[in-house]
């Protein structure tokens, strides 16, 4: 007889993986286009959560309105982030600058700077205490599925992550905007020469990616019931690991690796102390980098 304990751990792992995937999707989208890590993605996530919380405490709207509000804030934040941290480094459009590593790495630092400023600003405005979400809004009512207990949020997060993934794949492969995004990600200079508005494409990517980050933030806030300025850090790291394991620019790859991470963490808890379960995640990262330098799903050269 199969021990229901392992089924429960598997279910917890899947749900944990979903929460990582939710963040990894937007993260990977932005990386795929700019080929640079957006360190402020974790803060977009936090901003989304705070926007939702402020909305809830101000007007107590229905949950759909809360998520729409968070999406709007995410879009605005993505747009401003691009303006502030990325656009100034695209002033020079000659080939040498576009290929320059220094130019790319400077956006790595400028996005890190924005992330620090945003986090500290949130701390000044809201304080660094954890804030509770009103209980009516929480999405963690237990649901029993056979021998396994999950919560409503697990299904909502699964639905949202699946919708994001399918929606993005549709956008990227079936629409002109998606075609432009893929062209820019493949060869920004070439895309410019054939008449694609690269600036607009990059901004679009940021807005879409950040909306997803903000949605992830508010969902996690409602799922765990706590919102605080430093909440974006750990999921950011996990999403980063999932992205690297998945081959840096493959969105389905990042999602699958996020699930692998979640499951291996919860399964590892059975055999090693919970304090060591993070080691499993980072161990996987190291193994992937040694044996699959292009990531598990990064064999194809085409990005996004």
């Amino acid at each position: 007889m199969f021990d229901p304990y392992y089924l429960q751990q598997l279910a917890i792992g899947l749900s944990l993986g979903m929460t990582y995937a939710l963040m990894a999707i937007g993260f990977t989208l932005i990386f795929g286009v700019l080929n640079v890590v957006n360190f402020a993605h974790g803060e977009i996530y936090t901003l989304g959560a705070f926007a939702g919380l402020v909305l809830i405490s101000a007007t107590a709207p229905p949950i759909v309105a809360v998520i729409l509000g968070a999406l709007a804030v995410g879009a605005l934040a993505g747009f401003s982030l691009e303006r502030l941290a990325f656009k100034p480094f695209r002033r020079f459009t000659d080939e040498a600058s576009l290929k320059s590593r220094a130019m790319r790495e400077s956006t790595l630092l400028s996005s890190l700077a924005v992330s620090i400023v945003v986090r500290e600003a949130l701390e000044i405005v809201f304080g660094s205490q954890m804030r509770s979400v009103p209980f009516d809004y929480l999405i963690n009512t237990p649901v029993r599925v056979g021998p396994v207990i999950l919560v409503t949020g697990d299904f909502i997060i699964f639905g949202v992550a699946a919708a994001m993934l399918i929606g993005l794949q549709y956008l990227l492969t079936r629409t002109r905007v998606g075609l432009a995004i893929r062209a820019v990600s493949n060869n920004p200079l070439g895309a410019k020469y054939v008449g694609i508005d690269t600036d607009r494409t990059i901004i679009t990517t940021f807005v879409v990616g950040s909306m997803m980050g903000a949605a992830a933030g508010i969902l996690m806030g409602l799922y765990y019931g706590a919102v605080f300025p430093a909440m974006g850090f750990t999921p950011g790291i996990k999403a980063f690991v999932a992205m690297v394991m998945g081959g840096l620019s493959s969105i389905p790859g990042a999602v699958i690796c996020a699930l692998i991470l979640g499951i291996s963490e919860s399964m590892a808890t059975t055999f090693v102390s919970s304090g060591w379960s993070d080691m499993v995640a980072y161990g996987f990262l190291i193994l992937t980098l040694i044996f699959f330098p292009n990531g598990l799903f990064g064999a194809r050269r085409e990005r996004v």
Binding site: Y5, Q8, I12, G13, L16, T234, E265, T269, S273, S274
Partner: peptide, 14 residues
């Protein structure tokens, strides 16, 4: 022992 700031205790609880 668990790491401070752990979000999901369900594995540990099980």
């Amino acid at each position: 022992f668990f790491n401070r700031g752990l979000k999901d205790y369900r594995s540990l609880i099980s």
